[in-house]
């Protein structure tokens, strides 16, 4: 079964942008996609791997066992030879890849702990059953969730670099187009793929190009100040927020084939990197998102 092409996804531009940015620069720290069911969340994540070179999507099922995730003893080997050998788990496979957690808010607590540990250090340490072993596990964490089904632990929330909300399309014509494309895809996958081949290649090239450009992108102090101001104004405590905004803005600049970050990049990045960090208090009414949008709009107008 083939993946639905990334470029054939109708609308959901913000989500696509967030995914592409992570594809260009894994340092952004992943993306959390929040939204209702059926908004092409999973499709987009799976399709992303096709436009990235040397990257695959590794799936972490919410109810996986600890053995499977961190790795365990290779029983077969130990019994046949009497030697200890580690059988790597999902985290080993996720190294340098995208780690995809569907319904991340339902991820079992013991797995969340493992995930937090590993994500913080970029290393998976295995200390169990007489095995001591560690291996790098640097992954781009991509999670999807439907907020109606439960909330995410704040610690894990902060691990996600970017956060986007997706909504189902309300426009009838747009939705018809979604169905039309999907029908075509189901009807003849090869033909559909050929149709989008050029777009896909184009996107792959753009991402590759942005990757090469990225190290050369510069940020001046004036912009760093703008980021700090923004965070203070919004009352964000996390420094990771500032750093993520800067990194995302750099990546955005590279994506737009520039080697210098501009103010608009900062605001565009803030829109993706800050919304989930504003929700420090899960019990407060959700007005902070609007506050962010208003503030950003205001700033953009001011600078024009």
């Amino acid at each position: 079964m083939k993946n639905y092409p990334f470029t054939a996804i109708v609308g959901q531009d913000k989500m696509k942008k967030a995914l592409i940015l992570n594809g260009i620069n894994p340092k952004i720290g992943g993306v959390l996609i929040q939204g209702e069911k059926g908004t092409a969340k999973s499709t987009a994540v799976r399709a992303l791997a096709d436009v990235l070179t040397n990257t695959s999507v590794v799936n972490l099922p919410v109810s996986a066992t600890e053995d499977r995730v961190v790795g365990t003893l290779d029983m077969e080997h130990i019994l046949k030879t009497g030697e200890k050998k580690l059988e790597p788990g999902i985290l080993a496979k996720a190294d340098k890849n995208i780690l995809y957690v569907d319904e991340v808010n339902l991820l079992e607590d013991h797995l969340v702990d493992i995930l937090l540990d590993t994500a913080a250090m970029g290393v998976n340490r295995i200390e169990r059953e007489g095995v001591s072993y560690e291996h790098p596990s640097r992954f781009v964490l991509v999670g999807t969730m439907n907020p109606e089904e439960g909330s995410l632990r704040p610690q894990l929330l902060d691990r996600f670099g970017l956060c986007v909300d997706v909504e189902s399309e309300k426009n009838v014509e747009e939705r018809m187009e979604v169905v039309r494309r999907r029908l075509n895809f189901e009807q003849n996958q090869e033909q559909f793929e050929t149709k989008y081949e050029q777009d896909q290649n184009q996107l792959t090239y753009q991402i590759q190009h942005a990757k090469e450009l990225l190290p050369a992108v510069e940020v001046n102090d004036h912009l760093l100040r703008a980021v700090a101001d923004l965070s203070i104004e919004l009352g964000i405590e996390s420094h990771r927020a500032d750093i993520t905004v800067i990194i995302a803005a750099q990546t955005l600049a590279a994506w737009k084939q520039r080697t210098e970050v501009q103010l608009e990049d900062i605001y565009e990045a803030a829109e993706l990197a800050l919304p989930h960090r504003l929700l420090q208090d899960p019990l407060k009414e959700n007005t902070s998102g609007q506050k962010l949008t208003e503030l950003l709009n205001h700033k953009v107008v001011d600078n024009q």
Partner: peptide, 8 residues
């Protein structure tokens, strides 16, 4: 749901 996606 996530058919065809490998994880292990």
């Amino acid at each position: 749901k996530n058919k065809g996606m490998s994880f292990y």
